[in-house]
């Protein structure tokens, strides 16, 4: 049995379908699902980039990239969060490429040491509530309030394979970190209550269903997702500027070391992070870019959003090595 995957797959595909693609598009892994992914695909095509986007949960993409490390399927990965990108880089998955838009970025969003991962968005992970069903007085003031019995069954905890879920879980746990970087028993007790008090789902549709039928009124979501989600369900969302701050994550883009089309991948990276496209995306979806030029070109509402919430300070590089262990414990002993 030969393992010449492509040739054999093409031959078989041709035998079945009577034809096969000639020039391969570059494969982009991105957690930007649904309309966002489609919109990015359309705009990329208009700009002359031949791409194929694979969208999946951020953690699923992360797992997949690690699993495929010796046999990379992706050319570019875009939109994974700080901790994930840091791990992938340390595993040697990325090729160095400093995009044309790196100049002008804040140092924390650049990768001066390795020139591999560059950040383009910052995303607060927010706590929002359905203002049609809950008053401002009733709403929680911060994340730690959620375990209160009055919020039992009113918020939805998503799959830990989602970056958003992972981020707020880490954001909650680091509040209970001792001087050795370990989580205290109090922290794990909190997490158990947090899970027991919420609605635990594994799919986006199950989450939607919980809001549609009125059970859930508190949305734990990433900044840009809050509005879209509320619109889809049909309610007025209000974000809470939480006590203790909101976890903020930034998302990066990098080229896989194993790409067989480096030029096409580089061209895509240059285009994607460019202030023009970032501003266009901000206008379409309200996402806050990190590039100063892009912020300047963005709608005023987006510029205002950039300073709306108090960030929780999390040293992502320091917690990155522990996240796997924490999530395993949540999945196997708490969930």
């Amino acid at each position: 049995m030969t393992i010449d995957r492509r040739a054999a797959a093409l031959a078989l595909a041709a035998a079945i379908a009577g034809g096969a693609a000639t020039a391969e598009p570059i494969t982009v892994y991105s957690p930007q699902g649904e309309e966002r992914g489609i919109w990015i695909g359309e705009k990329a095509k208009e700009a002359g980039h031949d791409i194929q986007i694979l969208t999946a949960g951020g953690s699923e993409l992360f797992d997949r990239l690690l699993a495929e490390r010796a046999n990379p399927q992706a050319d570019v990965v875009v939109g994974l969060i700080d901790a994930s990108m840091a791990t992938l880089k340390s595993e040697g998955l990325f090729a160095a490429y400093v995009p044309s838009w790196a100049e002008g970025l804040d140092a924390i969003y650049r990768d001066d040491a390795d020139g591999m991962v560059h950040k383009f968005w910052q995303t607060p992970i927010v706590l929002a509530y359905n203002a049609d069903a809950m008053s401002a007085e009733e709403a929680p003031d911060g994340w730690l309030d959620l375990i209160d019995p009055q919020y039992a069954g009113k918020y939805v905890i998503g799959s830990t394979a989602w970056q958003t879920t992972k981020s707020y879980l880490v954001g909650l746990l680091v509040r209970f970190m001792d001087e050795n970087g370990e989580i205290t028993d109090e922290g794990w007790d909190f997490m158990q209550t947090f899970y027991d008090n919420g609605i635990v789902v594994d799919s986006g549709d199950a989450k939607t269903a919980a809001f549609v039928n009125g059970e859930a009124v508190i949305d734990l979501n990433w900044f840009g997702g809050v509005g879209t989600f509320a619109e889809a369900v049909g309610y007025t969302p209000v974000m809470v500027d939480t006590e203790g701050g909101t976890p903020v994550i930034s998302e990066g883009i990098a080229i896989l070391a194993g790409t067989d089309q480096p030029e096409a991948a580089q061209a895509f990276v240059d285009w994607f992070g460019s202030p023009e496209f970032m501003a266009a995306y901000a206008e379409e979806f309200g996402q806050v870019p990190v590039h100063p030029e892009a912020i300047a070109m963005s709608p005023e509402s987006v510029q205002a959003n950039a300073t709306l919430l108090t960030p929780q300070s999390i040293d992502w590089d320091a917690v990155a090595p522990s996240i796997d262990r924490w999530i395993q414990r949540i999945e196997l002993e708490i969930k």
């Binding site: 046999n71 990379p72 399927q73």
Partner: peptide, 12 residues
């Protein structure tokens, strides 16, 4: 065993 290939992530 498979001539230094990585099968995980492959079609086959």
């Amino acid at each position: 065993l498979v001539f230094g290939e990585t099968l995980l992530g492959s079609y086959w």
